[in-house]
Simulated assay, not measured.
Amino acid sequence: MERAAVFDVDGTLVDTNHLHVVAWWEAFRQAGHRVPMHSVHRAVGLPAGDLIARLLGEDRDRDRDGELSAAHKTLYGQYFDRLPPLPDAAALLRRLRDDGWSVVLATSASGTELAALRRAIDADDAITATASADDVESGKPSPEPVRHALELAGVPAERAVFVGDTVWDMEAGARAGVRCVGLLCGGVPRADLEAAGADAVYGDPAELLASLADSPLAGEA
């Protein structure tokens, strides 16, 4: 039977979480909001509307959410030509492909942002499919992105592993019924990832690759 290795992208395969933090912080600042960067960091990985609601509250002027999101996209977009892949991200995806896994990306990115992330990873030959923000109604921590990734791979939840770096990733994977692997390279503490559903935690793609034989991504097809 096929197996699916589903990957978040930002903070998991590409070192972008803190770029998102700075872009969101500046977008909020330009709109007259003073939001601490540590608060922004803990919200990274949520869909834009949910992130704004978490940081500004439900009683905010919701008519300005679109402006904030657009400002973030513009500010973050200045990095598209130099997004840094995390160590051995491409090597990990290619190793899993060679081991018989279908590699599927599950990301809130879409369009030019997703294209920039894929260029940074530079492993399109190892990627079977991508579940992007355009394909689902609800982002993580909803299980919908992970479930859509499983549909694209054509595998049941018990034949899949989801790799991510935020509590939202772990919650989404757990709710979708897949085993979850957390990576620390997004800046979220190990205890938080484990509490949110991580079955195993590694430092970054390089450490996961080096530990593959003892990880949830081990075993025969």
Rank of each mutant, 00 (worst) to 15 (best):
S108W: 07
P205E: 06
T74H: 14
E2Q: 13
L93F: 03
A149Y: 15
A210M: 02
S211A: 11
V103E: 11
N17H: 01
H20G: 11
T166P: 00
L114W: 09
H20V: 08
A160P: 12
W25Q: 14
V188R: 04
S132M: 02
T107A: 09
G203M: 12
G66S: 09
S102E: 15
A160C: 11
R159S: 14
G187F: 12
E158K: 11
L92Y: 04
S102A: 14
A4N: 05
A131S: 13
F80P: 06
A120W: 15
R94C: 05
P156F: 09
W24E: 08
K73V: 15
A200G: 01
V136M: 01
L75E: 11
L92I: 05
E26M: 04
D88T: 00
Y76V: 11
Y202M: 11
F28G: 06
L193Q: 01
V22Q: 09
G187Y: 13
A123R: 00
V6W: 06
M1Y: 05
D61R: 07
E158W: 08
R179D: 11
R60M: 03
A198W: 00
V14L: 12
R94T: 08
L217N: 03
D65A: 00
W24L: 10
D15E: 14
W101M: 03
E113S: 12
H72S: 02
F7D: 07
E58I: 03
T130Y: 06
A89D: 02
V181Q: 08
G203K: 05
G219R: 00
G186T: 00
G173D: 06
L208G: 03
C185K: 01
P156C: 02
H20M: 07
A31Y: 13
P47Q: 05
A48S: 15
P47A: 09
L208Q: 00
A90G: 10
L55I: 01
L55A: 01
G32E: 12
N17T: 08
L83Q: 03
E194D: 01
H41V: 05
P141H: 10
